[in-house]
Write a protein that binds this DNA or RNA. Structure first.
Lengths: 343, 343
DNA sequence: CTGTTAGCGCGTTCAC
DNA sequence: GTGAACGCGCTAACAG
């Protein structure tokens, strides 16, 4: 684990030349470069990234801010794990490293971000779980930190984002269920400050209004994105004067709790209540009846995230960081049935 | 987002004095210190960690190396998420930050570690998923990088580790099932290079031998730690000439796949085959019949991890980094039944 | 082509 | 009690 100085001393040339040789600068004799590279390998030279970063002002690292300790993470949501794999793959190809910056839900996200920015640990950040109004975005814009938002926000400004098509999924789900005769369609999502909940609700409301379905506000339920939340949802829906005949979930992890809750209340998922989940999740593969949901290639999405965040720091190679709504494909499942069976 | 220089200029004192005031050095007039601290707050001063790290040789950061892209992570294992929450809590109290260093299973772990060490991103590392023979440990020992291994290894050397009691869990599970009349007890775990599999098997073999149970090698199955692995396991066990009447899992995520696989084969989990899972996992809370398993406080374990890794970099406050085997408590479940029902 | 020099931002030592 | 100067490891600008 030698430094550039030892390398130079050992080769008896100046450290400047060594630096240029290692960094593929043009003005170095081929023979010298080879000598340096050979010796570097031999001595196990690793450039000290602190010194390099201090000098160059960049770290070749992307930071991914991740909330931990929230119900869906603890419940085993594999969304980020699947995503990060291909994000990292893309970054690695450009010589960038990925670090995850775990932010406890108990911590102040602003204080946390400020620390990370100051730390200079990353050239650009990816933030997720955007809020409808998100102070983090204001901070990042103000400090000029390059970032990509994984999720939209109503916070104004010129910044790139990628988000799933929550509105589309909610709207299409309503239409699909309505076409099968459902009139009282419920919807379940997390608390309103999370922007995805807002978008999901918009898509739902808009479709419900268009189709003239029952707009009963009791059909809109706020529960946590977890198995527990699904259980709570089951109980709330069953306790309504007129329970809905279908429900759309903003997070698929609610499904297993919902199934069990319904069954404990004597209702059969799919038969007595149609259910459409959000994302197709391998973890729910064996759920019966199979959950209707929406497919999404985490790999493709991860690559898009990687490319866009690279565009923020690398020469923006004609890849304009424009907003991107990620479409999802409906996957049929036995959890959805027509309201009146057509024999 | 000002640096120390701007602070000094604004206060019209030297950089050195500002630095001393901020770092609580003795040789500074109380009044001056207060002025500095006040201004620092006002200007939103954040020390540049690159410069600081370069100068001090330490970063006040702990790196947690995490494998991503493996089946259990993608399957939604929440083990690390739950753990990290309290690790970070402990670190934060000592002013340390936590960064996660995701290592793709496709990447070379050694090359990856070398990069991270050189990067100087962390004062100490936590590595997990230790192998029976683990070259990473050799590298870390050789380079003198402080680290904590989350998991034992047979790789020799003087280093601290914390590990779950795989041997104990496997052995106790065998004894428990044997006491209920089971004689052919199967065991399922990941590939042998992962050390936990080795330990698990040792505990199993030792108990099987002690009790004079059927030592049929077909009862030892290697499958991935995922729902899929559980499904594969079900098929393999059912295809044996004499299927076992009980099975012990090295990873609880196998359980749901196993349940479904058995049911598809006409067997009832619990009735026709007793099942003991590994860790109590909230994600499996609603599994029926309820899974017998072993409880573990992720919070307590996380705190232990945090304290021990801090002891590597902070003044070791009488907390000797001795090896630690983390005990787990058996939780009864309906997935375990006596072989011959006693009416 | 190569050596020399000047910082990047900070903490620290040594004068004053 | 404070300021000035030095150096952590590295890259970039300039001189030779």
């Amino acid at each position: 684990m030698a430094g550039i100085r030892q390398l130079a001393e050992r080769l008896d040339i100046s450290i400047g030349t060594v630096s240029r040789a290692l960094n593929n600068k043009p003005d170095v004799k081929k023979e010298t470069r080879e000598r340096v590279l050979k010796m570097a390998l031999e001595m196990g030279y690793r450039p000290n990234q602190m010194g390099r970063a201090l000098r160059r002002g960049s770290t070749n690292t992307i930071g991914f801010v991740m909330e931990i300790g929230n119900p869906s993470a603890l419940g085993g949501d594999n969304f980020f794990m699947g995503l990060l794999d291909s994000v990292q793959e893309v970054l690695a190809k450009s010589g960038f490293d990925l670090v995850l910056l775990p932010c406890r839900s108990a911590d102040d996200p602003i204080e946390f971000l400020q620390r990370q920015i100051a730390r200079g640990v990353a050239d650009a950040l990816v933030i997720s779980a955007t809020r409808r109004h998100d102070p983090r975005i204001e901070l990042l814009l103000k400090t000029g930190t390059p970032f990509l938002a994984l999720g939209r926000s109503e916070t104004k400004g010129d910044y790139p984002w990628i988000d799933l098509d929550f509105e589309g999924v909610a709207g299409q789900s309503v239409r699909r269920l309505a076409a099968m005769g459902h009139n009282r369609i419920a919807i379940a999502m997390p608390r309103r400050s999370v922007n995805l909940a807002h978008l999901f609700l918009q898509g739902y409301r808009s479709a419900v209004a268009d189709l003239g379905l029952d707009p009963d506000p009791d059909l809109v339920q706020r529960v946590s994105s977890s198995e527990n939340g699904g259980m709570a949802l089951a109980n709330r829906l069953m306790s309504l004067d007129i329970p809905p005949t279908a429900v759309i979930l903003a997070h698929e992890l609610m499904a297993s709790g919902l199934y069990d809750g319904l069954q404990q209340g004597g209702l059969r998922p799919g038969h007595d209540m149609s259910i459409i989940g959000f994302r197709q999740n391998p973890q729910l593969r064996y759920l019966r009846p199979s959950l209707a949901c929406h497919a999404l290639s985490l790999q493709a999405l991860g690559q898009a995230v990687g490319r866009r965040v690279l565009a923020l720091v690398d020469p923006p190679e004609s890849d304009p960081p424009s907003p991107l709504v990620w479409e999802m494909d409906y996957i049929e499942g036995d959890s959805v049935r027509p309201l009146i069976p057509v024999a």
